[in-house]
Design a protein around this nucleic acid. Structure first.
Lengths: 233, 233
DNA sequence: CGAAAGGTTGACCAAGATCAAAGTGAGTGG
DNA sequence: CCACTCACTTTGATCTTGGTCAACCTTTCG
């Protein structure tokens, strides 16, 4: 089974005729500790990358969407877990092939390096959030992050498009909690508080409508030059 | 003024005959928002990279040591601040020159990509710390981080070398606090608690002796395969 | 030597964690 | 198709960790 050519960065062309794999929710694509023998590109669906300490504490490192590259590591083993959140399709190629291609096509390697930088900058945002923001602020940032991710994944829509304000939360409250560094009860309460303040409306457990985007952004502290252009979703 | 050839990765050779700049403690090398026109490599000393929100909250993103590369960004402006913690010397070259060299020498670009990955993996550790660890654990990790950094910067010494257990803390308590996501009072108290437990001894404000490395590592939770080989200092 | 910055300590406070119970909803088997 | 079950979510009560505020001590530097 193959996948049609993908839009996006040059290096993603490596996946143009790659075989794909289907995942059901919860299914593990990469298990921490396994040899890093393949790399992946998401064709559709949402995945989740996490790391669990030996005492059971888990940190969700990132949620991943279409055209996100997976397999990033300098070591020869994965040190994180990746699993599906929604039904998903990923294109896979052997890591060695990918690396060979990078070597062969300098332009692709260059694009890859650029993408890596953007990932790195996103991680710095996450660090700022975990180190400095309150529970309520983290939830605000999280909702804006999901809005932004969907905008990227589903093609650039007008930022004012009201459809973007319907945010899907396919993951559990605990997944969210482990991502933003809180407990699931606190996530629940914080969402409740955002609703009471009139910033959002909980449609059901897995759908939220953003009612006041401007105030949500204000709360998220998306005001400094760096975040403002990157979290514009 | 030039700098002798440096050890380390291929891409660092770009700095071999670069002019250098001396910094006094506190001096700003890169101001957030400035055009990203230069890249740097640390010759000696300790620097600090941070990001400050518009409301004044500051997150220290990283402490930087010899042969650490600075200037990493996909955008055309720096979105972080870098300043000296100790007296320091950095080699500087124009960003355009560096990029041209990367393009010319695929091997260097490759090494650079590898380094970027390692930085990225370190950031994932930081995220785990900020999201999951307690105050005491964060301080334990921090001390091990400094020990490890010195070991890397001053050349590989035997892990058992007792000299490594003398850890220098040239930064202020507030710098530490903003790095580990706590308040300076909590940093003070946590160090006190580590001392009362017999894991460390505070020699003076800027020097700590690790008395029980094994227990400190235990507390830091450096047990899973990923951290254990990376935080081995 | 004196001022100012940095560090420690104590008392109190609050955000978020923990524990517990009650709703809610999705999937399964009869 | 319905009912049952189990997982997930919400909400409430209470507790703990770390934050805040304030005083005092130490170090550094002019």
């Amino acid at each position: 089974m193959t996948v049609p050519p993908l839009p996006g960065e040059v290096f993603l062309e490596a996946f143009a005729s790659a075989p794909s794999r289907e995942l059901v929710p919860g299914q593990v694509l990469i298990a921490a500790g396994a040899p890093a023998s393949e790399v992946f590109n998401i064709v559709s669906g949402m995945l989740m990358m996490s790391r669990t300490g030996n005492d059971g504490r888990r940190q969700v490192l990132s949620f991943l969407f279409r055209d996100n590259f997976i397999g990033l590591t300098a070591a020869d083993r994965y040190y994180f877990t990746v699993q599906a959140v929604t039904p998903a399709v990923v294109a896979c190629i052997p890591r060695a092939d990918f690396q060979a291609r990078m070597r062969r096509v300098p332009e692709a390697e260059h694009a890859f390096l650029n993408m890596t930088f953007r990932v790195l900058e996103d991680l710095l945002d996450v660090i700022y959030s975990l180190g400095q923001r309150t529970a309520l602020e983290r939830l605000a940032v999280f909702l804006l992050f999901l809005r932004h991710a969907r905008r990227l994944a589903e093609g650039p829509a007008d930022d004012a498009d009201p459809a973007l304000n319907e945010v899907k939360l396919p993951m559990t409250r605990e997944d969210i909690a482990d991502f933003v560094g809180l407990q699931k009860e606190t996530v629940s309460r914080s969402l409740g508080q955002l609703e009471r303040r009139g910033l959002i409306r909980r449609l059901d457990n897995h759908h939220v409508r953003i009612l006041d985007l401007a105030q949500l952004r204000e709360l998220a502290g998306v005001v400094d030059f760096a975040s403002s252009y990157r979290l514009r979703g």
